[in-house]
Design a protein around this nucleic acid. Structure first.
Lengths: 241, 241
DNA sequence: CAATCTTAGTATCGTATGCATACTATCTGT
DNA sequence: ACAGATAGTATGCATACGATACTAAGATTG
């Protein structure tokens, strides 16, 4: 639960399965020119923390460090499709929210080749994810992203910059859109939704005001939570439109 | 609680044609793999309209149609540098505001090769531009972008989609940032600034409210306009921070 | 089964912000 | 001097927001 910082430096233990991140397969272009990859920022919320899915690198540049999962864009593959392929490879899911963020194209960003990387953010409720925070599954970690950014452990490539941008973007959009709803289940309680907002924004919100703010965005269901040692709370869904 | 909920996703308008025409100069990569270009959306305001700088294509794919100016990213050139190089090539200016927007990477977007294009938006006060609306200078046009988008003339490649996105983005950011200041001169009157806002947003604003809104963002100078047949107006500059 | 704990949910209030209109100010041109 | 035109200000009303205090309804405990 308290993750990494120490974990980031761990050596790899050759437990590879479907892992990969990288590139080599598929119909990737030969690297005499510029290669294009999609870097994936897959966020979830668990244990009251914003979690990011990362890969422990086994290969040469930055071996042993944490890196974002990545796919090389195939010569006959749409950019968005490549991103979705990567998301599916690493999570097993193909129905989660994702959107393109920003493209990183400095010449020095990959020491071994000229690569331009398009970052994509995906948001998935923890209920759909097979991973748990701090647990290593086939070289994949879920790390507390704010811990990671506060620490000064090296992160592979320019991925720290990508993470910082995505972290900022998520909070920024949460202020004015319903993007954060993608981090809770389809049916959710208002306390849960508020907690998600608080985690993303990094500050506490007033309950009454929060409810007024989202009132027009949600529809109540007939269901209530049960079994907890306090008043049950109603379940809602995001309203269409 | 304003704008659209979190969806930036765009559909692609794959039009397929044929034929080739390789790219141009500079140290461009050979096109056995994926090529990367920067597409430039250079906006200005003149004649109470939002103007976009466009090129009349002379070469084969889409010859005779309007297209966005574009540069191919060199193998040893930073992505941002390539965009700035293109902006300078077409405007002669190297000190104007620009930022990356969105990356378009569908396989069918260029019929002659696999190209991924990173769109960049630049904003320049009309005083700095050598072009005038509706005037053709070396194959370059300044076009009324809202007229262009309302019409159904074909635009080269997927550039219509790029323009639509940039047009939306500019209005969206204008609501919450000072980005529109880049479309007026360094020293400006409030009526001029308000006109810029109204053109970008596509609606009229109340004078008194507009002034209250920007009051904290600007600093007044000692200068007034002169020579006009009405009360002079004060000149302001954007406040630092 | 009543008291208590804990979290869910609501009422209210003062203040800031936004929307809209009406007014005053200062130049040029005749 | 006066008309025309645009610059700039004052003010009232409605709504959104920050903040606090309250009520509601389950489980747990004795």
């Amino acid at each position: 639960m308290k993750n990494n910082s120490s974990d980031t430096k761990k050596k790899s233990t050759t437990q590879t399965k479907k892992t990969t991140t990288a590139s080599k397969k598929n119909n990737a272009a030969v690297s005499t020119g510029i290669t294009v990859s999609a870097e994936l920022l897959i966020f979830s919320i668990d244990e009251d923390k914003l979690q990011l899915l990362m890969i422990e690198r086994e290969e040469k540049p930055y071996a042993g460090l944490l890196a974002l999962p990545s796919v090389e864009v195939g010569i006959k593959e749409n950019l968005d499709d490549a991103a979705l392929r990567g998301i599916t490879e690493v999570t097993g899911l193909d129905d989660i929210y994702y959107e393109q963020l920003y493209t990183f194209g400095d010449t020095g960003r990959d020491p071994s080749k000229r690569n331009i990387s398009v970052s994509y953010m995906a948001l998935v409720p923890i209920e759909k994810l097979a991973f748990r925070p701090g647990e290593r599954v086939a070289g994949v970690w879920l790390v507390d992203v704010d811990d990671l950014l506060e620490g000064d452990d090296e992160i592979a490539f320019d991925h720290r910059e990508m993470i910082e941008y995505a972290r900022w973007y998520l909070a920024d959009r949460t202020e004015s859109t319903t993007i954060a709803f993608h981090l809770v289940d389809d049916m959710f309680t208002l306390p849960d939704l508020q907690r998600a907002y608080e985690i993303i924004l990094g500050r506490s919100l007033y309950k009454a005001n929060f409810r007024k703010k989202v009132a027009g965005l949600i529809e109540e269901t007939e269901y209530l939570t049960t079994g907890e040692a306090h008043r049950p709370s109603r379940l809602y869904v995001l309203a269409e439109e």
